[in-house]
Amino acid sequence: MLEIKSLRKTYGGQGRTVEALRDITLTVEDGQFVCVVGPSGCGKTTLLRCLGGLLTPTSGEVKVAGQTVTGPPDGLAIVFQEYGRSLFPWLRVAENIELPLKSKGIGRAERRKLVDESLSAVGLGDAGKAYPWQLSGGMQQRVAIARAIAFQPKVMLMDEPFAAVDAQTRADLEDLVRTVWQRFGMTMLFVTHDIDEAVYLGQRVVVLSASPTSVLENLDIDLSDERDQLKTRSEARFVELRTHVYARIQEAKGVAAR
């Protein structure tokens, strides 16, 4: 379970402080898929970094599996937006996936197995010997996802992972994330600025306000669990939901502008 209570984060000092997050309270049940959307510059990444233990909150609390987060928590993996920079260019694909397992103290045979499994789970069964920079952007992000899977996290955080790939690759990767989630059953928190993507992927969509950020709405996505790029996106309910979220975000921007 992922619990966020009255999370607040301000940056700066020396006269000028910027309040990035004002008040975020949010709970994600075990095994749930939650998407977080908000207007650009609303501190989505700050939120995610606080959850991942990469940033210390100014006040409030983050708990992963009942444990208060003070540093990167056990059993949590992050997939970053910048795939080109989150893979080690001097390590081959398989070594990239293996590295976190080494630091976890997993034995060689088990590591091999996990690497192979996770690579085939993302459809890159035979790319283990390549270097990341020999792969296309979409494939690189698959490797990053495979690395997260192999880590066997209870919670997986994704920070706008598909913002930098082209539209077709993006659709494939979205379906891949759904499949991975269904197969491995981890808790998934997916940050995006793309409203359609959020509605398409999540069981729940959390709408954030403009900066200073708080939670605007917690919306259940009552679409069926079987999602399909063509069918789901053309369903009336999908259109309703995305229109609703879109309106809330426009509203949020308007408030900020005023």
């Binding site: 233990g53 990469l54 990167p72 992050i78 970053f80 920079r85 880590f151």
Partner: peptide, 19 residues
């Protein structure tokens, strides 16, 4: 980003220095 990756996967110490 790589540095964050190391932190979030808890890659530290000698392994972090070396790899």
């Amino acid at each position: 980003v790589l540095s964050d990756t190391c932190r979030s996967y808890r890659i530290g110490g000698w392994l972090r220095l070396r790899t």
